[in-house]
Amino acid sequence: MSSVRLVYFAWVRERIGKDEEEITLPESVLTAGDLLTHLKSLGEEYEMALEHDNVIRVAVNQEHVEHRESIVGAREIALFPPMTGG
């Protein structure tokens, strides 16, 4: 079991209803995709925020990762929708 800080932005943040939280991840959560699946089991606000999980972007320690990539040992993981800056 390891503890990680999760941060949320834009409509992911609004739907989950918080900016950030510290959670403990089960050992079985190894990739960014595993994390999304795990979070969706935590309640309907997560389910609603992460429903279309293929569009959700993940950053580990402030760098983009693909869903298949490892999140093991991450201090901070961010979840957010596709970016619309510029």
Partner: peptide, 14 residues
């Protein structure tokens, strides 16, 4: 820079 910034820099417009 603009093309990559738009798709990879974490900003969101409401």
């Amino acid at each position: 820079v603009m093309d990559f910034l738009k798709t990879s820099a974490p900003f969101w417009k409401k």
